[in-house]
Write a protein that binds this DNA or RNA. Sequence first.
RNA 1: GCGCCUGUAGCUCAGGUGGAUAGAGCAACGGACUUCUAAUCCGUGUGCCCGGGGUUCGAGUCCCUGCAGGCGCGCCA
Length: 577
Amino acid sequence: MRFIETMKQDIEERLLKALSLSQKNGEVSFQTLPQFIIEMPKEKGHGDFATNIAMVMAKEARMAPRKIAESILSHLEITGSYIAKTEVAGAGFINFFLNNQWLNDVPKAVHEMGANYGTVEDGLGKKVQVEFVSANPTGLLHMGNARGGAIGDSLANLLKAAGYTVEKEFYINDAGNQIVLLGTSLDIRYCELLGETRDFPEQGYHGEDIKATAKHYLDEFGTDLREKPQAQREAILCDYALKEKLKSIKEVMALYGVEFDVWFSEKTLHESGKVKATLDYLLEKGYAYEKDGSILLKAENSGEVKAPQKESAKGDFVNLEDKDDVLVRANGIPTYFAADIAYHKDKFDRGFDKVINIWGADHHGHVARMKRSVGFFGYNPDNLTVILMQLVKLYRNGELVRMSKRSGQYVTLEDLIAEVGYDAARYFFVMRNPDSAMDFDLDLAKSKTSENPVFYVQYAHARICSILRQAEAKGFALPDFTTVDYSLLQDEHEIELMKKLADLPEEIAEAADSLEPHRLCPYLHDLASSFHSFYNHCRVIDVEEPLRNSRLGLAKATAIAIKNVLKILGVHAPNEM
RNA sequence: GCGCCUGUAGCUCAGGUGGAUAGAGCAACGGACUUCUAAUCCGUGUGCCCGGGGUUCGAGUCCCUGCAGGCGCGCCA
C-alpha cells in the first residue's frame, strides 16, 4: 500500500488538469512541459506536499512563477481529494495541505500486511545477483569482509523487499598463485611440526591460523605425508586447508546472520573449461592476442600505448586504459582477471538482469575493465554494478587499533562479534555510506547507552512489546487491529507517527532503487523517535476504549514497521531489553 | 604522472537525485519518573557546507579548477 505514491499521483493529475485549463483560457502558454517534481517538504509550514511546476516552466511560459502558480490554483479541483488547502509560496512553490483522513488507513494497512508491510513491487520479475564478501579462503575474515557482509546482505534483503528475485553469492578464490603459496606455507609449517625447518617465503602466509591448520592435519592424519613428494604434500595440505577455511568462513558468516545461496568456486571455472572457452572467444573475436606465449587483452586504446609519461620514484606508470592486460602468463597459467571474465560471463549466462559486486576500494582499478569485458559477450556493461567500499579503521579507547597479521594483533570478524555483539556490528557497518572511509568505534558499539544508535531503535521495539504485555496483563483483550477506528488519533504526535509509517514503502523503494541500504537507518531513527515522542505525550493503556485500542494498534503497527526494517538490516528486534 | 573515493556543527556522520530558514546523534546546560521500560521525552545554540570560478529563477547537491587526506596503478588476487 503506497499511500504517498498514490497521493502524489492524484495531485499530479489534478495539477495537469488545472494547467491545461490555464492554457486553454490563454492565461499560460507553453509548448513543452519541463520535468517537475512533487515532494514532501521538510519544513512543516510548507505543507504535506509541494511542487515546483510553476518555477520550472517560468522560462518556457515567459511568465513570473508566482503568476503561473496562481493561475493553476484558480483552476485546481480539490473536491473528492484529501487536499484541504493550497497556497503559493516562496519563489513560486505550490504547497498542498492535506486533511488527515487518509492517515486512518495507515495503521490498518500495516496490520493487514504485517511482515510484508513496506515491501513494494518495483522489482517484480527481475533477477538480481549480489556477490559479496568473497574473502580469500587463505586467511581469517577481517573488517573489510565485515563491512561487505553487512552491506551486501542488507542490500540483498532490501532488493527482495522491493520485489526483486535475489541471489546471494560468494566467490571462492580457490585457484591461482595464492593457492600455490598457501600450499607452500602449509607444507613448511607441517614440516616444522615434524622437526624440519625451511625458509619461509616473504609472500607466504605467516599467520598463526596457518600453523593451526597444519597442526590440525597432523592431529587428524598423523605423519603420513612425511614420505610423499613435496608437490603432493602441498596439494593435499592445501585441499585440507581450503575445506577447513571455508567451513570456518561459513560458520562465521552464519554467526553474522549471512547465508549465501551460492558458493561459487573459481577452480570449477578452470576445470570445466570455461576459462579456456572465454580465452578462445576473445582471441577469435580479436579482443585479445597472443604474444611470446602469453595472451593479452587489448586495451581500449590498444596500439596507442605510450611510453611512460615521466620517471617517478615508483617507476613506470601507464594509463590503465592504454595498457593491455595479461590474461595468460608466459608460463601458460591464466591470471585471476581471465578467470574473472569467465566468471562474469557465467553470471550473465545464468540470466541475471542485474549483477552487483561489492568490492573493497583497493579493487577499483579493476572495475572499468571488468565492465568492459562484460560487453565483449554482448551483455550491457551497465547491468554490472560494482559498489566500492572504502576502508575500515578500528578505534579502541580513542586510539587506532593497528593490525598486523605477523604480530598476531589482528581483530577478526569473529572477535568483533564477540566484543560488540551481533546487532551493533551489523548496524554500525550498514549505517555508513560505503563511499566514505569508516572509523569503527569499538567502545561506542559496545556501550549500552543512548550513545549507541542501535539501542535507540531496539528500545522502541522492546517498549512497544512491553506495552502490549502490560495491556494483556491488565486483562484488556487485544482487538483485531485491522478493524480498529484510527480516526480517533488526532494528537500531533499520533499524526506524525502515522505519517512516518506511511512513508516506509517509499523509503524502501528509493533505497532499493539507489542500492543504498544505509538510507534506511535515518528513517528507522526518525520512526523510533516519533514513537518515543508519542509515548511520552500520549498514554496508551490508561485511556478508555475505544481510544485505547486505537493507540495500541498504532503502537503495534510501529513495532511491525521497526521489525520489518531491522530485518532488512539483519538486526534483531528484541521483545524486551 | 594517471584514476577512484572523501572534505558539512567541538566529535561521528545524514543530507530523498537541483528547492524554501542546511539536519541528526554525541558532547554542554536546564527541566520531566508514586503513573504503560528515564536505554526515553521536552527545551537552549552551533556552521566561510575545504578554497576559487561557472551553469540558473535557485547549488551542500551539477560542471571546471585548485588544496588537503585515503586507496590504487603487478605476467598478485
